[in-house]
Design a binder for these strands. Structure first.
Lengths: 133, 133
DNA sequence: CATACATATCGAAAAAGTCCGATTCGACTT
DNA sequence: AAGTCGAATCGGACTTTTTCGATATGTATG
């Protein structure tokens, strides 16, 4: 027989609820798992939508550029120094993810940050990544 | 303020050396982009590292599972219901990104969230994505 | 030391994402 | 209406990421 991890719980951070159903026979985790630690698919989907939208250098540059206020699509083209179709598809993804919102004025389309919470996410991520390098 | 789109169309008579212009004909924003809105590459890199690590369903499930405390790699295998090598590579990426930290105990490896700021990022993202669906 | 188990890593195929020319569409001007 | 400009979208080449069997490493046990 083999030991089970976390049985005696002498670790420094073993303070979680003991509702995890551990097995009493066989290998470490065979058969049973802490099902109560699953999270709803909706939450995962929400997070995934946002993070996929943010996991791209050009899209991050767009958002950083929009920190101080709205810009039109063509201005973002020059900031990214990329072809119109490239910038356009990035903007589409940001809009589909709900990160940015648009305002049409004549033949121009102005983009702005939809929710300041997006900027908080950026700030937190920057701080997180910073002390890891 | 920079010139907003509104200057008259000049026609295809671009003669100067386009320093930042990629299009054949400058119009709306050619030459007058808000350069001061650029952000340092370091910040972008930090954000990118974090967001790339979080932009994956399985890795998000791992992090959500670790909210309440550490779990060993084999427990995470059963949560994800994926082969050991798949889970292992996701855990490697999370560790390389600094999202999780490990603790070895005998032949087991325990994973935990490295920084509670990660969970704040998740919470914000979940809220952001929520009201977009 | 042989064995079993936990896990890290490799490598190649599959899947997903990015890039960008070309096209389409809408709004404006003449 | 015809032409122009800004912008959205399509299609396919290209790049990156994911997946997972196979293998390697490490740790306990007999």
């Amino acid at each position: 027989m083999t030991d089970q991890p976390g049985l005696d719980g002498d670790g420094p951070s073993e303070s979680a609820s003991g509702t995890i159903n551990r097995m009493s026979e066989g290998a470490c985790c065979a058969g049973t798992f802490p099902a109560n630690r699953r999270v709803s698919d909706d939450v995962i989907d929400s997070e995934l939508t946002v993070f996929k939208a943010l996991a791209n250098e050009k899209r991050l540059r767009i958002i950083e550029a929009l920190r101080d206020g709205e810009l039109c699509a063509c201005e973002l083209e020059t900031i990214l120094d990329a072809p119109q179709s490239t910038v356009g598809s990035h903007l589409s993804k940001l809009r589909e993810a709900g990160i940015v919102r648009t305002r049409k004025e004549g033949k121009w389309t102005y983009y702005r940050i939809a929710d300041t919470a997006s900027l908080q996410v950026l700030n937190l991520a920057a701080a997180l990544g910073e002390d890891e390098q």
